[in-house]
Nucleic acid binder design. Structure first.
Lengths: 244, 244
DNA sequence: TCCATACTTCGTTGCCCAACGAAGCATGAA
DNA sequence: TTCATGCTTCGTTGGGCAACGAAGTATGGA
C-alpha cells in the first residue's frame, strides 16, 4: 500500500496542521525535555546549566534540547550577562502540561494510589497556587460569588464581582494593578492532582505573591512544593472563611 | 550519563510522573499516530485498515502503532466479528488533542493566515460540534442564560437552566435522556480554530445528533467537516436566535 | 470444506536523533 | 591582558524505533 501522492493539497493541507502538532508533542515527549518543562512549570526561569543538571544530561545535550524547545515555541530565553534564563513560553504551555499530567495521573492511579503528599496539598503551578488548598480557595471564591464565570472572555474565564473586589482589597491585594497587566485577569486552570480547577491569571499570581509575602505559605527551594504556615491557616480561615 | 538508579525513590517518585507524561507525549507525537488520533477526533470508531490508509502506512505498521496507543490508554478497541474498531479512549483525550491544536494553531498563524475554510466554519470534535458556528451556539446559550457555569461540577462545567430546558425540549431534544447517561452533561471544550469555547458533553453530543438528523448540517464522509444547510441556517435563526 | 478477508506477529533493515567530548565564543573578573 | 565561567557548536557514536514483507491466526461466507 503506497503512500498515495495525495494530489490536490495546494496551500494549507490538513497535513500541515498535524505535522505541527506532531512536532510539539515529540518536543515535549523526549524524557530529558519533559523533565525540563515540568521543572519550569513553577514559573521560575532557569539557566541551561541548572536545567542540564535537573534533566541529568551534559550541558551540550541540554543546549540542543533547549534549542529545540525554543524552535517549537514552548519556551523562551532571556539573555542576561553571561547567563541565559529559560522559561515557559506562556500560560498556554503550562496548562497543556498540567493537562497532560491529568492523563498521566489517570494512568498512575491504578498503580500508585497516593500522590506525593507535600505536592498534593500545595504547590506552585507556573506563577500561581495549585493543590488541594488552591482548589479549596477557588471553590470558596465561587461559592461566595467573589468571582463569576465570564465565558465570552474565553474558556473558563472569571471576572471579579463587587463583593469580590471588597474582599480582595481588604486583604491588601491591588486589583487595579492586576487588571492593568497585559494578561488575562482570572481563569480556571486544571489541577492534575485534584482533577478540579484552581485559580490562574493575574489574580492567581497576585494571590500567590500575597501568600508568600504575608508568610501564609513558604516555598520549597528545590521543588514546586509550598507549605502552609500556622499563620496562613489562621488567616485563610478568618479572612476567607476557609476550613481545613 | 546513565539514568542513575535514582536510589531512594520508594513508591511514588516525581520520576514516575514525568516518565509517564513522556510516554504519552511521544505516543501522540509520532506523525502516523498523530494523524490517526486527529482522525479519531470526530468520535467515529474506525478499523485498523482504515486508519492505516489514513496514516499512509501499511496495515502491519498501523497495527504496531495502534497497540502502542492502546498501551498508553489513548485509544480503546472493540472487537466485532473480524473487525476491530478503534476509538479515542475518552473526552479527556479529545480535549488534550484540541488543546495541542491550539498551540499548533498559534504557531501556524504567523505563517498561514487562513485555516481551511470548511473546517473553520463547522466540524465535529469528538462527538460534538466545533468551529465558528459551534462557538456562536455556545455563546448564544450563555447569553440567553439557557446554560450557566457550574464550577463545583468540574472545570468549565455547565448546568441547564429552566429556560434552557424549555428551549431544548421545544427543539425536540430529550434532556432527561442526556442526563441519564453516565457522562458529564455539558462543559466548555476549547476550539482550536476559534481559540474560544464550544459546547461538549452529553448535551453537545445530543445537539450534534439533532442537527444531523434534522438535516441542519451534513457530515463530510472523509474529513471532520460539517456543512450547514439552508434549512439549518433558517432553523437556527428562528429557533435559537442565531445570526450568521 | 475451502477460500477470502481482516488483522496480527515476527524478523530484518535502515534511519533518526540523543548523547557525549572537544573545541569555540562570548562575558566578566583578576 | 589573562584566565575562569557559562554556554554553544561541531563531529562522532550508538541505540531505539518506524517501516516493511511474509507468515500466522482468527472470522465469516461460498
Amino acid at each position: 500500500m503506497r503512500p498515495l501522492p495525495s494530489a490536490g493539497n495546494p496551500i494549507h493541507s490538513p497535513i500541515r496542521e498535524d505535522a505541527l502538532l506532531s512536532k510539539i508533542a515529540t518536543a515535549i515527549g523526549e524524557p530529558a525535555r519533559t523533565r525540563m518543562l515540568l521543572t519550569l512549570l513553577d514559573g521560575h526561569a532557569r539557566t541551561s546549566t541548572e536545567l542540564a543538571a535537573l534533566a541529568e544530561v551534559t550541558p551540550s545535550t541540554a543546549s540542543a534540547h533547549l534549542n529545540r524547545l525554543r524552535e517549537t515555541r514552548l519556551i523562551r530565553v532571556a539573555a542576561q550577562g553571561r547567563h541565559r534564563y529559560y522559561s515557559l513560553r506562556g500560560p498556554e504551555v503550562a496548562r497543556l502540561l498540567e493537562h497532560l499530567g491529568v492523563l498521566a495521573g489517570g494512568i498512575t492511579k491504578k498503580f500508585v494510589p497516593s500522590t506525593p503528599a507535600a505536592l498534593h496539598k500545595a504547590r506552585t503551578c507556573y506563577d500561581h497556587m495549585a493543590g488541594t488548598i488552591a482548589v479549596a480557595l477557588h471553590d470558596q471564591f465561587l461559592r461566595e460569588r467573589w468571582l463569576i464565570a465570564d465565558p465570552p472572555a474565553g474558556i473558563d474565564a472569571y471576572n471579579i464581582t463587587r463583593s469580590g473586589l471588597k474582599t480582595l482589597e481588604r486583604l491588601g491585594i491591588d486589583v487595579a494593578a492586576a487588571r492593568a497587566l497585559r494578561r488575562r485577569l482570572a481563569y480556571a486552570c486544571l489541577d492534575w492532582s485534584e482533577r478540579r480547577p484552581h485559580l490562574a491569571g493575574a489574580l492567581g499570581a497576585a494571590l500567590l505573591q500575597h501568600a508568600v509575602t504575608k508568610k501564609w505559605v513558604v516555598r520549597d527551594l528545590n521543588t514546586r512544593a509550598l507549605s502552609l504556615t500556622k499563620l496562613g491557616e489562621r488567616e485563610m480561615a478568618s479572612q476567607l472563611g476557609l476550613k481545613f
